[in-house]
Design a binder for these strands. Structure first.
Lengths: 135, 135
DNA sequence: TTTAAATCCGACTAAATTAGTAAGGTATTA
DNA sequence: TAATACCTTACTAATTTAGTCGGATTTAAA
């Protein structure tokens, strides 16, 4: 029930992009050194976020990444969903019928719904107000 | 963000105990075969639940496990907390101060709170009403 | 037009975690 | 005293995670 390091990095990077939303694209290197994330690893993560459609990239000199939509339209739920590969903790879809009780699935569904609902209602701009020590 | 197989087994086992709440202790073997869980693995899980205080054991012939409290006093949250080792997805407690932004931690806290609150409000007896195919 | 800065892409690897086995010990009761 | 069932620890195979690495492609600026 932990968010993976990968996803945590992803969230961090997205917050960084939100913070510099009006400053043009941020390069991997900038984000990586700013957030203390291994560059080559972040590269993978950003590519995934791009394929997920929530960031756009500009190649070449002075290129980098930027948010596809404004920070108040980008929810953390989307970020997590893209990186974590669906929030669904259910695992018994296929062969559930032969199990003696499926209450378990009900519980897992509830968990999933709860998480999804929560995360979908947290937007990046809200996060900018908190915990910024300096920069 | 998935519940581990271990935890899923744990929930399943707890539901089984709830279902037979008035029938005296259930042995590992009974639960395992009934729920399709590897016995030796379940043994570990039950021991952990016992140490967590939500089930009690009776050794020796005709022994087994039983719920410490009634199904309507035992929440799924407790089960998950014991097996998953705290629901906290936060990981930066110690060296958070040197990070440029801790909004991430805020998000993770929100996730945690959401999950905890949800699970703490689901009790075993509610689950008995659902998805029982036969037995 | 060349060069440097950047994204892109796929393959690889080490470490950690997970899921499960195995074996032997200890308590209880018939 | 024998069978049953919990208890405990150690081990292992498979999977996942957290990266690394090398090179190709795009782009802007010199």
């Amino acid at each position: 029930m932990k968010v993976s390091q990968r996803t945590e990095y992803g969230i961090r990077a997205m917050i960084s992009l939100a913070r510099h939303y009006d400053d043009g694209p941020s390069s991997i290197k900038e984000i990586a050194t700013g957030e203390g994330i291994p560059g080559a690893f972040l590269e993978q993560i950003m590519a995934e976020l791009r394929r997920g459609g929530i960031v756009e990239s500009q190649r070449g000199v002075n290129g980098g990444y930027m948010l596809s939509k404004s920070p108040n339209e980008t929810s953390v739920g989307t970020v997590v969903e893209i990186l974590e590969g669906s929030l669904s903790p259910a695992r018994c879809e296929s062969d559930c019928s032969k199990m003696p009780d499926c209450s378990t699935r009900t519980v897992l569904k509830k968990i999933e719904e709860s998480i999804t609902k929560t995360l979908d209602n947290i937007y990046l701009d809200e996060l900018l107000k908190v915990g910024v020590h300096e920069e």
